[in-house]
Design a protein around this nucleic acid. Structure first.
Lengths: 111, 111
DNA sequence: AAGTTCAATAACCACCTGGTTTTATACAGC
DNA sequence: GCTGTATAAAACCAGGTGGTTATTGAACTT
């Protein structure tokens, strides 16, 4: 449904993350992408379809080849979403939460 | 396998993202989390199990209640991973890529 | 002790996912 | 017009996911 659904789902697979990493150093064809994976070509094509549906990869045409290129826009959207949680991974907030919890626990013990 | 697998997979579901959003404003019990969703309690419990397995939620004990708390550490790891792509969602790089592609296309046309 | 509340477990279902092998399609070059 | 190459498509399979209802269990309440 949401674009974040597709983006995060696409990123949840290590093969797909490796494909994206490879595409940072430039365009690559399907067979080039498949080579390091010891995995069948159709398997890679399926992964590429997932990445394409998530808008993370676009494909052009070069004779029989279908070169893939990284499209990072959705990654920015994902990062923006995660940014909303940045203040929660700073230690002082974590400690504050735990302190509040301890206090609550003491209340319960007392009465 | 990887912690990123579990993190991104957990984030791929809108219900789970909404649960995390709710937990930003403090601890909540399972029934409290289930209330806004028009979804059965076991369904929410399953989502919480996924979030817990991904290390995004921790649970304490308060009588029959099992209050859930946000654990943002894995979100930082995910953000760090995404950071490696930040230079690709800036327009000038995108344009550079497309320019290189156009040049390559012209070469092909010429020869 | 009996009832109520909060949450987990079990059993089930439809659908999706990640992989396979096999087959088909599209283009290139001799 | 074959042959080889690059990729997609089809059919299949095992296992995971997201949901349900019904049941169980644990802990508070009266």
């Amino acid at each position: 449904m949401s674009v974040l659904d597709d983006t995060f789902a696409a990123l949840a697979d290590p093969t797909r993350r490796a494909i994206l990493a490879r595409l940072r150093s430039g365009e690559a064809t399907v067979t080039e992408l498949a080579r390091p994976f010891n995995m069948s070509q159709p398997a890679i094509s399926k992964h590429l379809r997932v990445l394409e549906r998530a808008g993370l990869v676009s494909r052009s045409r070069d004779a029989q080849r279908r070169p893939c290129r990284l499209q990072a826009g959705p990654l920015k959207a994902a990062t923006d979403w995660l940014e909303g949680y940045s203040r929660f991974w700073e230690d002082r907030y974590q400690n504050l939460d735990e302190l509040l919890d301890e206090l609550k626990g003491e209340e319960a013990d007392d009465g």
